[in-house]
C-alpha cells in the first residue's frame, strides 16, 4: 500500500476527515500528490471533483510536486508598499526560477501568500512556515544560505 493510502485510511471514518488527511499527507510529502486526491475521493466517498475542490480551496494545501523548502512572499498591501515587488525580482534572480516554480534540484519553490501578520516589519517572507521580517535585496541571500 502506498504511503498516502495508509495515511488517508487513518482518517476515513472521521466526519470531515478529508482535511486532516490532506494535512497529514502534506506533512509527509511536502505537498499533496495528484493520486492522493483520487484516493481521498474514494476513501471519503465523494466525487473526485469535490475532493479536488477541498484540496485546492485552501492556500496552505498544494496539489502537485514542489520543492523541499517553500518560500512564500507576502504581497498584501503593507508588504506591497514596502517593496515586495523588488523582493520578488531578487528572489527570482537568486534562484533562477519564476514565481510558482521549483528549482531543478528540488530545493526551493517560490509562492505568493497573503498577509502573515508581521506587518510591523515589512516586507515579510516565510520559509517552510517560519517568518522572516524586514527582508531586503541585501539580506535575502544570507537567509537562503541557511537552507542551501
Amino acid at each position: 500500500m502506498s504511503d498516502y493510502q495508509e495515511i488517508i485510511n487513518r482518517y476515513k471514518d472521521m466526519r470531515g476527515g478529508i482535511i486532516q488527511a490532506y494535512h497529514a499527507v502534506q506533512d509527509h510529502y511536502g505537498y499533496i500528490p495528484e493520486e492522493a486526491v483520487t484516493a481521498a475521493a474514494k476513501a471519503f466517498k465523494m466525487p473526485k471533483a469535490q475532493a479536488y475542490g477541498v484540496a485546492t480551496f485552501y492556500s496552505y494545501f498544494k496539489v502537485g510536486k514542489r520543492g523541499r523548502n517553500v518560500i512564500r512572499i507576502c504581497e498584501s498591501a503593507p508588504c506591497h508598499v514596502a517593496g515586495a515587488d523588488e523582493l520578488v525580482k531578487t528572489l527570482e534572480k537568486e534562484l533562477g526560477i519564476k514565481m510558482g516554480e521549483t528549482t531543478v534540484d528540488g530545493r526551493f519553490t517560490l509562492e505568493f501568500t497573503e498577509c502573515v501578520g508581521q506587518c510591523q516589519s515589512t516586507p515579510v517572507i516565510t520559509i517552510n512556515g517560519k517568518p522572516y521580517a524586514n527582508v531586503t535585496a541585501d539580506n535575502v541571500a544570507a537567509i537562503l544560505a541557511e537552507y542551501r
Binding site: E75, A77, E114
Partner: peptide, 9 residues
C-alpha cells in the same frame, strides 16, 4: 495602486 492590491486580496 494600494487599493488595487487590496482588491486583489
Amino acid at each position: 495602486d494600494v487599493v488595487t492590491r487590496i482588491a486583489k486580496f
